[in-house]
Simulated assay, not measured.
Amino acid sequence: MKILLTFPGQGPQVPGMLHDLPDTDDARDLLSRATAVLAEPVLQLDSPAALRSTRAVQLCLFIAGVAYARQVLHTGIGVDFTSGLSIGAFAAAVSAGALSYEDGLRLVALRGELMEQAYPRGYGLSAIAGLTQSQIERIIAQVHSADLPVYLANLNADDQFVIAGSEAAMSRACELARGQGASRTRRLAVSVPSHCELLNEPAHKLANAMAGAVLQRPGIAYLSGSTGRVLWQPERIAEDLALNMARPVHWLDAMVSAYQRDVRLAIEMPPGAVLTGLTKRVMEQGEALALSQNPLSLIKTLAGRLTGR
């Protein structure tokens, strides 16, 4: 039986999240290195005002993801796969050993800046639950136009999707979705239209910057949240990281792929818990747990019981 670490995308960020990292030498070292690389006091990134910035949110999630993953790994839990949704992919790549922490910091900071500059206002993401993919696609086809751009961005489960686009287009699409029986529609705490062609230009700028980073074959399997495929080649991981902001998220496919590869324990890094619920729907056997909701000692005991390690 295998173990997977999952890393959330934007949405679960909370003020003070970097101040609440584990009180360990390793976490303090990561914060110190982040301050040096970014040339700014990193502990100011998690204030309520700072978290209105896409760049700050993404850096906080990245740093937290790496810190908590290291805490898990240092307990002796044998991790076989890492996978991240959107910005979570960068923490997954660092935790797998494919990308250095310092390069990750530089790339995540640039990623956030590029996304903010592309769409500083009037765009974002909305979640729709309770409809099928074909229903969502028909609604998008009905609403989408040059003036009202809207796209299918995340395929999280059979009946849970995220759309990206302008505020007006998303509002109209959600209205139609509710009229067709959607159980819930919700504007997400994301201020850019991620995972659609609206971000093609900033994605390719990030790909150019990725050429300056050094990637290597990971020691832990890197499972792409965009494609659902396990990637080992450094150049393919680099492409996946750079372009994922403009590609739809296929989280359901990724979790099906993990389950088919004998994953029976998925551990979501704080501050997220949403991925855990989505993963539970796929894992007919085994467990999916959020570290933010369960003590690490319990997770370690469960990991030993499931894997016999």
Rank of each mutant, 00 (worst) to 15 (best):
A93L: 03
L105Y: 03
V94I: 10
M170P: 00
S134P: 01
L199S: 01
L188S: 02
L105A: 00
E113A: 06
E116C: 01
G179Y: 04
R217K: 15
N208Y: 00
A169I: 04
Y101N: 00
H144L: 07
A146P: 05
L114A: 04
G122E: 14
I163C: 01
S224A: 12
L152P: 00
R178E: 14
G212T: 13
E102A: 04
R186H: 00
G179E: 07
G212H: 13
M170L: 12
A221G: 04
L188R: 01
G165H: 03
S191Q: 11
A98V: 02
A118T: 12
S171P: 00
I136N: 00
L110W: 00
S224P: 10
A129T: 14
R184L: 10
D147E: 15
L105T: 02
A213D: 12
N208K: 13
R121S: 15
R172S: 09
V108L: 05
S194M: 06
L155A: 09
R172A: 12
R121G: 07
G112D: 11
A164G: 04
L125G: 02
I136R: 01
S226E: 15
Q160M: 07
M170G: 05
G124F: 05
Y151S: 09
P149M: 11
S166Q: 10
A203L: 06
P120F: 07
I128Q: 03
K205N: 13
L176M: 11
P202Q: 10
A98P: 03
Y119I: 07
A109Q: 14
Q160C: 10
Q117A: 15
S166V: 08
S126E: 11
G181E: 12
G104C: 05
K205G: 01
K205T: 13
A164H: 00
A182N: 02
R187M: 06
A98T: 06
E137N: 11
I140V: 15
A168E: 14
I140D: 07
D103G: 03
L105P: 03
A118F: 01
L198C: 08
R178T: 12
G181D: 08
A91W: 04
F161H: 06
A93K: 04
S183D: 11
P218E: 12
A173R: 00
E137S: 14
I128V: 15
E197S: 12
G225H: 07
A207F: 06
G112H: 08
G165P: 13
E113Y: 02
R172I: 12
T185K: 04
A98K: 03
H195K: 09
G112E: 11
V190H: 02
I136M: 10
L198H: 04
H195Q: 10
R106G: 05
T132A: 14
I220T: 14
G112C: 10
R184V: 05
A182F: 02
A109S: 15
Q142D: 15
M115F: 00
Q133F: 09
R172M: 13
R121A: 15
P149A: 07
V162E: 04
V214F: 09
E113M: 10
G112T: 08
P120V: 11
L131G: 05
L125Y: 07
M170H: 03
H144R: 15
A146E: 13
